[in-house]
Amino acid sequence: MEKYYAESHEWVMALDENTVVVGISDYAQHALGDIVFLSNAEVGDTVTFGERFGDVESVKAVSEILSPVDGKVVEVNKDLEDTPELLNAKPLETWIIKVEGKIDPSKLMTEEDYLALDKDH
């Protein structure tokens, strides 16, 4: 399935009609450096587009993860509790939360547009 990106460097991808997964971009993991901890949402939480649902920490930085979608968290990636470094190793294959909700492409970028974005400014 196709990934859509938010300006705040999260991606979202549909699994089926009502379920999406959310992760962070390769650019984001690279900018953060070695990720050491993820403070994640909990199952049952409501997430709102553009609002924080978790924090990702590297050795000397912490960054909020904003939700690229509205909906309800139905699953969190438990592997990340002990091995947050998966986000460095395979950012595009590692989802953080699974959400019951629908992608709104009008608020997001396609992968092509996101990769073309000048992210340093």
Partner: peptide, 9 residues
């Protein structure tokens, strides 16, 4: 050089 990453993980 000290491994800060392991210290935090």
């Amino acid at each position: 050089r000290v491994d800060d990453v392991q210290a935090a993980r």
